[in-house]
Structures are given as C-alpha cells and as structure tokens.
C-alpha cells in the first residue's frame, strides 16, 4: 500500500468580491498516493483550477484542511509561460534561481533531463523559435527542475492543436511515468483523463465536490495511445460522460 501524501478533508473555499461571495469548493475530500496519477474532470467553471491552488498552498482553505506538509510542487499551466527573453536553458533553470539552489550540480542535472527528453539542440534557442509541442515539453522540464514531489497540471495540453496534443500527451506521460512522479491533472477532456490517469475524480458543478471517484482498470497499460485502443476505453468514456452530464 502506497503512502497518502496529499489529503483534502472537507475543504471549502469562498471567494469574496464586492458583489458578494461565491462558494467555489465545498466538502471536498480526496487523497493522492505517492506515485499516483489522478485526473480531475468537471463541468467548466466548477473550480478545478482553485483545487490546484489549494493543493499547492497558494490559497488557504476557508474551512476544512489541506494536508500537504513538506511537499514541494511543480506547476504546469495551459500555456507554456516560458519567458520570451530567456533562452530555453535559462528558462528551465528559473526554478533553481527562485529556490536559490542554482548550483553547477543542479544545472547539470536539469540539463541532462532536457537532453534525455530531446531538448538538447534547443537549449540556446529562444521560446519563439520552438514549436508549440517543444515549448510545452520545455515547460515540463522546467516543472521537473526542482525535483518536486507532486506535479500539478492545469489543462496543460488544451492550448495545443489535436495532432500535437496527442504527441505531447504521449511525451509527458512517458516522462512522468519514467521519473516516477505523483501528478494531479485538471482537464475538461474525458478521453485525456482516461488515457493518462490511474484514478479519475468527477467533480460536480459549483460548488465543486467529488461526485464520483474511479480506479481505472487498464492494468499495466500506461501508454496513452495504447489505452485508447483498449476495449474498456469507450466504456469508461461513456460512463464518465454520463456522470459529468447527469
């Protein structure tokens, strides 16, 4: 049995504006085990992104508890958010600079990671010289630079065109699996969730709470494209689709 490293217990979050208050998240309870890949799907605008900010401790919950003691997080957003004035190399070193661990040893480690995943020829290029897929791959390496315990993925593929999206999903999945990372993926794409995750949480409309949680039964098949060919893929799709819209 793997250790639970991140736990939400009856979490509630209220946003305050001058016009009033909005309950974004309520009674939210789930946990994330070490090495596990969870995908969270939910109707649009249901507070999925809020969930990530809560997990990372960027937002304190209004009520309940988020247990994330001692965890370090790596964020990956919809757009790559690479800094255009920095080369790819400088971009992937950025977290090292922020955490003040910008040592030759760490730089070497991150560089090796970049080279391992096919970025070696782009290290001295600027982001604008790379394709969308390559940029998102660079963004993932930047996320991995500080060796975080948990990856928080906020619809990281939704800004890519379909072809690139399948390829990058493939890449990212392979990198996350082979680096044995724990990941929490937010997405509105049901098939993406099924092709990537070990477990899928279905959220309700706002205020978001976990309506269903499913352990996916793909056995050893972790490759996203292979999963799409599995027999139970479409069954899962139909089921989740019904739950989302039901």
């Amino acid at each position: 049995m793997k250790k639970e490293i991140l736990r939400f217990r009856d979490v509630k979050l209220v946003y305050h504006t001058l016009r009033g208050e909005t309950i974004a998240v309520e009674n939210l309870t789930f946990s994330l085990k070490e090495g596990e890949f969870i995908a969270v799907i939910g109707p649009s605008g249901c507070g999925k992104t809020t969930l990530l900010s809560l997990a990372a401790g960027l937002l304190p919950p209004s009520d309940g508890e988020v247990l994330n003691d001692g965890l370090s997080f790596g964020y990956m957003l919809q757009k790559d958010e690479l800094f255009p004035w920095r080369t790819i190399e400088k971009n992937i070193f950025l977290p090292l600079e922020i955490k003040k661990i910008n040592t030759a040893e760490n730089r070497e480690r991150v560089k090796l990671l970049a080279e391992k995943y096919g970025l070696s020829e782009f290290l001295h290029s600027y982001p604008s010289q790379l394709s969308g897929g390559m940029r998102q791959r660079a963004a993932l390496i930047r996320t991995l630079a500080t060796n975080p315990d948990v990856l928080l993925l906020d619809e990281p593929f939704s800004a890519l065109d379909y072809q690139t999206r399948l390829n990058v999903t493939e890449d990212v999945s392979q990198i996350i699996r082979s680096e044995r990372k724990t990941a929490l993926l937010i997405t509105h794409d049901i098939s993406e969730a099924i092709s990537l995750a070990d477990r899928v949480l279905v959220l309700s409309a706002r205020p978001a709470t976990v309506r269903f949680a499913h352990e996916l039964d793909f056995g050893d098949v972790v490759n996203p494209l292979k999963r799409r060919e599995e027999r139970n893929f479409s069954a899962w799709f139909e089921r989740l689709w019904r739950e989302l819209n039901g």
């Binding site: 960027l58 919809q78 958010e81 800094f83 950025l94 922020i98």
Partner: peptide, 17 residues
Amino acid sequence: DGNKMLLLRSMGASKVQ
C-alpha cells in the same frame, strides 16, 4: 502576465524575486 506570476509564486518566489 498574471499566469507567469502564478507560475513564479508556485515555485515559491518572493515579491522581490
């Protein structure tokens, strides 16, 4: 860009950084 700020904050950046 607000998203780039969020990214830096998630890395634990201070306001000076």
